[in-house]
Computed example of a mutant assay.
Amino acid sequence: MKTLIKTIVLPALVLIGTATQVSAQTKRSNAKQKTVVTTTKRTTTVVNKANNRRVSSTKVIYKKPTRKVVSVRSIPNKTIVKHKGQNYYYANNKFYTQSRGRYIVIAPKVGFRIKTLPANHKRVRFNTHNYYISQGIFYIQINNAYEVVDPEIGTVVYELPEDYEKVTIDGQTYYEYANVLYEKVQVDGTRAYEVVGIIDME
């Protein structure tokens, strides 16, 4: 009887124990593989978002087909801003270009410089940059001047200028001002707008 137990029952118990251990290891192994796949998907999405920060203007669809153009006959106390060999004008915290005897309000181009920040500016720190924002325009300090720049992706602001526009890109709705794309977000329960891209004009 003892011989029968040793030759049949003990090997059977060893086989069952081994099979259970292998099955448990397989389940653990599968669980690890699933976690890796999920992480990889998240990483890929973030990388794609970062790489696609510049969006072709041909992909942007504006909700309104035309934009209202604001112009005035004269600008008192204007400052001339030279940019790439062309004259622009700065007064009342706004930039203008001249056309047919009138001054047309424009969003300043990247690279414009002014000596004094607009009175209503706000300071925002993101990563290593101090941005100064006024009416949707981002400035950084360079020596004794302030230069218009594109903000970094991820920069958050709490308000947009009144004349921002709603746009869609690949069916998603965004907010645009001065070629900067924003997405509405919540920060500590407060509505805010995160920079998600820059439109390349073509």
Score class of each variant (00 low, 15 high):
residue 112 F to I: 11
residue 102 R to W: 04
residue 102 R to N: 12
residue 96 Y to K: 07
residue 79 T to L: 02
residue 130 N to M: 07
residue 107 A to S: 13
residue 66 T to Q: 06
residue 137 I to S: 08
residue 106 I to S: 01
residue 116 T to K: 14
residue 82 K to P: 11
residue 64 K to T: 12
residue 66 T to F: 13
residue 109 K to A: 14
residue 148 V to F: 03
residue 143 N to C: 05
residue 54 R to Y: 15
residue 138 F to T: 04
residue 76 P to W: 09
residue 126 F to G: 06
residue 121 H to M: 03
residue 96 Y to F: 13
residue 145 A to E: 10
residue 60 V to P: 04
residue 109 K to G: 08
residue 74 S to G: 04
residue 130 N to G: 00
residue 129 H to I: 10
residue 133 I to L: 10
residue 90 Y to S: 09
residue 107 A to H: 09
residue 85 G to W: 02
residue 118 P to H: 07
residue 119 A to E: 14
residue 93 N to P: 09
residue 58 T to H: 01
residue 85 G to F: 03
residue 145 A to I: 11
residue 50 A to I: 09
residue 127 N to Q: 14
residue 100 R to W: 06
residue 149 V to W: 00
residue 73 R to Q: 15
residue 102 R to F: 05
residue 123 R to P: 05
residue 72 V to N: 01
residue 111 G to I: 02
residue 122 K to N: 03
residue 85 G to E: 03
residue 71 S to P: 00
residue 106 I to P: 09
residue 85 G to Q: 03
residue 111 G to Y: 05
residue 98 Q to K: 15
residue 101 G to Q: 11
residue 107 A to L: 03
residue 52 N to Y: 00
residue 53 R to N: 12
residue 94 K to T: 06
residue 106 I to C: 05
residue 101 G to K: 08
residue 52 N to C: 05
residue 93 N to H: 00
residue 81 V to P: 04
residue 85 G to K: 07
residue 115 K to C: 09
residue 72 V to K: 08
residue 80 I to T: 15
residue 77 N to I: 04
residue 89 Y to H: 02
residue 77 N to G: 06
residue 134 S to R: 00
residue 119 A to H: 12
residue 145 A to F: 12
residue 90 Y to A: 02
residue 145 A to D: 08
residue 91 A to H: 00
residue 53 R to T: 11
residue 113 R to H: 05
residue 63 K to F: 07
residue 87 N to H: 04
residue 101 G to L: 06
residue 104 I to V: 15
residue 55 V to H: 06
residue 50 A to Y: 04
residue 122 K to C: 00
residue 121 H to I: 03
residue 140 I to N: 08
residue 116 T to V: 13
residue 146 Y to R: 05
residue 128 T to S: 15
residue 103 Y to Q: 10
residue 79 T to I: 13
residue 81 V to W: 05
residue 57 S to W: 11
residue 135 Q to H: 14
residue 129 H to S: 12
residue 83 H to A: 12
residue 149 V to T: 13
residue 70 V to W: 10
residue 54 R to H: 14
residue 117 L to R: 01
residue 149 V to M: 10
residue 117 L to Q: 02
residue 83 H to Q: 13
residue 122 K to R: 13
residue 117 L to M: 02
residue 112 F to E: 11
residue 93 N to T: 08
residue 56 S to A: 13
residue 142 I to Y: 01
residue 57 S to H: 10
residue 62 Y to L: 12
residue 83 H to S: 08
residue 143 N to F: 06
residue 53 R to K: 14
residue 145 A to W: 04
residue 131 Y to G: 01
residue 68 K to W: 04
residue 144 N to A: 01
residue 119 A to I: 06
residue 66 T to V: 13
residue 79 T to W: 02
residue 66 T to G: 05
residue 131 Y to A: 00
residue 70 V to I: 14
residue 123 R to W: 00
residue 75 I to R: 10
residue 75 I to K: 12
residue 82 K to G: 06
residue 121 H to D: 05
residue 76 P to E: 05
residue 113 R to V: 15
residue 58 T to P: 07
residue 57 S to A: 13
residue 109 K to Q: 15
residue 53 R to D: 02
residue 59 K to R: 06
